[in-house]
Structure formats: C-alpha cells, structure tokens
Amino acid sequence: MNLEVTIRRFNPEIDDAAHDELYHIDAEPMERVLDVLNRLKWESDGTLTYRKSCAHGVCGSDAMLINGENRLACVTLVKDLKSTKIKIEPMPGSPVIKDLVVDQSAFWRKYEAVMPYLVNNDPPPETERYQSADDQFLIEESTKCILCGACTQSCPSSWGDDEYLGPAALLKAYRFIFDSRDQAGADRLNIIDNNKGLWKCYTIFNCVQACPKEIDVTKHISALKRKVVSERY
C-alpha cells in the first residue's frame, strides 16, 4: 500500500520553528511504523532523526505521537492505523531536540524524585528475602513499565503543570510502596501526597490508553490515593 507520511521536522541548527514534511512510501500492512521511518531515513533522507533500539517494545526508545496518540513506533503496525495517511510528531509536553527526539530530562528527574529503588535496612538474609506469590502479584503489573514516557507525555495534568510528577513516576512509587520487602513507603508517600503528586491526577485515563505495555496506570495511582486516605487522613 502507498502511504502518505507526514513528519513534523525541526532542526535546531537551521529552523526557527517546526514544519511538516510529506513523504510517499510503499509499505506492507504488517510493517512497523519504525520500519517505515527506517526506510525513509536509510533510503531517502538521512537527516530524519528519531530514537530507536530494540524494535520490539521492550526498551522504550521510540515513543512518539502517531496519528494523534503516543505510541511506540516499533509496536505500531501500519495496518493498526487503519489509514494510508500517517502523521508522526514528537511526543507533546517536552522540548524538542530534533525532529522526533524530545528532551526527557524532566521526565527522568521526576522518576528519580520518588526514591526509585528498594530500601531495606535490615541485614540481608543468607537466602533470598521471601515474598509470597500474592505479594509479588501486587507489584507485577507495575514492574512491566519500560519508562518510555508515553503516559506522562499524554497527560493533560502534566502538560499543564511542569512540577507534576506524572503517571510514570507515580507508578514507580507504587512499585516500591507496595513491595512487601521495602521499608521506605512512608518517605515516598511524603513525596507524593501533595498537589504536585497524587492529587494532581484527575483520573483522565490518557495514561492508560497510551501505555504500550497495557498497564492500568490510573488503577495504581488510585490504589496509592486510597492508601494515603486510609492511613493518613
């Protein structure tokens, strides 16, 4: 099938503002949008710039706005778009470095802000720390997160408030607060129990729709809200 691919371009060394460029290319329905971008770059326009690595949805490099939704280019097939017109833009809500590459430094700062590591100050046992299968199940969905940024950068609350931690960071907080082996839950709750954290989430569900790993992010944020309400107020 012949595709009309419109790509939002911005070269910081040349352009004052971003502009759209139209490409025509033949593609198979089962091809990934990333394959289409690769062929455009390798065969016709080497200046086209985007991040990529694993190409099958586990590394999180190639989140971008595809036909109006944040998606990974490597898990979106041409046929999924149900159109011969594809519009590809950088994810909204972050400064653009070049073409489809966005500056995610604020995203990573927020991730680091929630103490994203297991804290357990007891001396480690001779064996593993035991954890019941039920306790493991409680955090399993949250551990699937690949930190691609598709959720946070589709969240209107995040767009509207640069200081809001956003869904990805809150999900990471959940992953440790609900880990039966962790001891720093109270510290993390202090970090997120405010209007730049949990209470900035208005359950809009954009994050759930955007997540390429099908994580119900809002469910996890709601569980944190319930925990805070039941334990603190």
Binding site: Y117, Q136, D179
Partner: peptide, 9 residues
C-alpha cells in the same frame, strides 16, 4: 533479589 528484583515466586 536483595537489590529488589521482583522474581516470580
């Protein structure tokens, strides 16, 4: 595991 890897159990 002590570092936090969420192994299946």
């Amino acid at each position: 595991e002590h570092y936090g890897v969420p192994f299946s159990r």
